[in-house]
Design a protein around this nucleic acid. Structure first.
Lengths: 128, 128
DNA sequence: CTAAACCTTGCCGCCGGTGTCAAGGCAAGC
DNA sequence: GCTTGCCTTGACACCGGCGGCAAGGTTTAG
């Protein structure tokens, strides 16, 4: 399979696939004319990459998952290295959620106080 | 007050202050030698900018708050435009938190299943 | 007089995944 | 032979808030 077909089937662009290839996440042979040739299995790999990128992983995070797939596992997340990344990412997301919630609370309070202040100082009509 | 002093007092760098100035967030006159001269009040402005940046606002979001301070208000958040930004940002943070929580749940489930799968397939010792 | 400590503008780098364009090689149908 | 559509590498652009450096002018202390 050449890069255009893989891109169409995976629902992405050739530019993107070349980038993954360049960074060692895809496996490709070269035909005599220099064209990249991909196995069917790479479609699954691209799907894995895309879905992990979509949840906020970067390419380095994704490497173990790809390796896990190549090792013959049905999913990329059952290998020790993948599990380790999952743990780390989960922790990262947790702290990120905590921070965002703190920000949320601060914004909420600031908003509440600002509105209270406006109603107190300038006697405009109350919000509709 | 020159830029170095303002930077020291605000706990930031001259590079940063020039950046704010360049983007119209600070107000400065020029001395005869070309040096920027800042009023005392700009210290408060820099503080406002920094604290809003810290919670994830970008410079454009911050403009109304600065304008509000310049309009003579004790805090930058009591003016209508600032309140509008606060509302918008609060909504953004809310959806961001929701997305992150969804990701969190997905990661958690994936992790749980991956570990269950490992314990089922390869009979390694259970995690310590 | 000179060194040190300011100040100025301007430009490159970063981060990461991708869009996009350039300039060219190859394949296939007419 | 010519057009069309694939493929190749390489390189710039983006986003945003800076860091850092260069090359120069200014002021002040000693």
């Amino acid at each position: 399979m050449r890069i255009g077909e893989l891109a169409r089937r995976a629902g992405t662009s050739t530019r993107t696939l070349r980038y993954y290839d360049q960074h060692g996440l895809l496996r490709s042979r070269r035909a005599d004319n220099g064209y990249r040739a991909f196995d069917e299995a790479e479609l699954r790999v691209v799907d894995e990459i895309r879905s992990l990128l979509a949840v906020g992983f970067d390419l380095d995070d994704i490497r173990p998952f790809v390796a896990c797939l190549r090792a013959g596992h049905a999913t990329g997340d059952v290998c020790p290295d993948s599990v380790a990344v999952l743990r780390r990412k989960l922790a990262e997301v947790d702290t990120c959620v905590d921070r965002l919630n703190a920000v949320r609370d601060q914004l909420h309070q600031q908003l509440t106080e600002a509105i209270a202040h406006r109603e107190k100082t300038c006697l405009t009509r109350p919000a509709p």
